[in-house]
Design a binder for these strands. Structure first.
Lengths: 213, 213
DNA sequence: GTAAAATTTTAGATTAATCTAAATTATGAA
DNA sequence: TTCATAATTTAGATTAATCTAAAATTTTAC
């Protein structure tokens, strides 16, 4: 696989993360996520297809190559986040933007040695699984908060985003990976939930927040 | 200081390293080093001046800003090389190209924490001094091999380049930092030298090689 | 001090990545 | 089915960084 620009790599990562169960997404969704003009995205889609990173000329579906590239970028991103937190003592809300740059450093040797030094971590500091060398992800029997049943006990395993504003909000609310919780109330009309954390603390979450678990 | 592109940063580093005792270099020297067309360099020089990184519109002299940027890049480069060798077990000839990418990662927090973890290294794996936060370099009373006096004893403290082809050549000859050596013969007509290493091994160097010490 | 050689700059083109505005195509609701 | 709205693509422009070819300038050598 030849070297792609950071721009191309960011498009591939974005497409990967936006794909639905059919492995498909749309120009407008990518444009929205990247805060780019749809015309720019449309243009880039043509070029991604020419590079063999997309299946179809018009449909937004990653090719095998594109899929592997995305997973390898996620692997590098999460390994660097693990490194920053474990080795350089960063906090979990500080690492996203730095890993976003580090993931584009191209060196097969470095990508091989970093996980050796970290002793083959399986999860990053946000509880998200780190794809292996071949891009495989473990089967997690984790469920999103929005699908949790009332009064059932769960363990807080991961967050779905590593953006600092969201993580700072969790910090303020005192939430950490590993905590036990159950949903005590679920509001149907606005999707908000009330949680009992570690059997002693109540927290309310809006639907927007709940979707990030 | 605002964020510059990797391209701009590479120009500044190149200009810095090519400057003579008057702090000056030429368009053609930069073009040669970067393997770019002189026209491209000329063009970039205008833009570097517009950004305030060069003193004059036409003369190739770094401004205070440009000088500081260069030293901070060298600092990051050498810190990352130290990290790669000491922490990830890279060899000294393997780290240049990776550090060349890592030095462009922009994060004040990372640049602050990396040297803390490494316990404030003063020299990189090639014996080259690491500028401090403010860009200051220690006064070395080291002399280049080309100026060594015959039969005077010296210690091998550093190499002037971290390019892998040169370092592989040294490895093949069995040269390492810390070795004691003296010049036993000096050929005036071609600049080549004969060295006695650790009092038991003779090595011949051409002028080209000697200039990299 | 002038002419040849070397160096630098200008002019115009190219590529990647973006934009706005306009045209086209697809979706979907009555 | 048809027409309005939404989504996408095309056309044309812009910016950073590069190129080649040609013009202008500076150096060097006699």
């Amino acid at each position: 696989m030849k070297n792609e620009s950071s721009t191309v790599e960011n498009y591939i990562k974005t497409i990967y993360s936006l794909c639905d169960k059919n492995g498909k997404t749309t120009v407008s969704a990518v444009a929205e996520r990247l805060q780019n003009n749809p015309a720019s995205v449309s243009n880039m889609v043509r070029r991604l297809h020419e590079k063999g990173l997309l299946e179809n000329k018009s449909k937004l579906i990653l090719s095998k190559e594109g899929n592997l590239l995305a997973r390898q970028l996620i692997r590098k991103h999460r390994l660097w986040e693990t490194f920053l937190v474990r080795v350089l003592n960063f906090k979990w809300e500080e690492v996203h933007d730095i890993a976003e740059q580090l993931e584009h450093v191209h060196s097969p040797l470095l990508t091989e040695r970093l996980p050796v030094f970290l002793e083959y971590p399986k999860f990053d500091p946000h509880g998200d699984p780190i794809p292996d060398k071949k891009g495989n992800l473990p089967d997690l029997n984790a469920i999103p908060l929005t699908e949790a049943e009332v009064d059932q006990l769960y363990i807080f395993r991961s967050v779905a985003t590593d953006k600092s504003d969201f993580l700072n909000y969790l910090n303020k609310k005192g939430l950490q990976l590993g905590q036990k919780w159950k949903v005590t109330e679920k509001e149907e009309f606005d999707g908000s939930v009330k949680l009992l954390i570690d059997e002693n603390r109540e927290v309310y979450f809006s639907e927007t927040v709940a979707q990030n678990f």
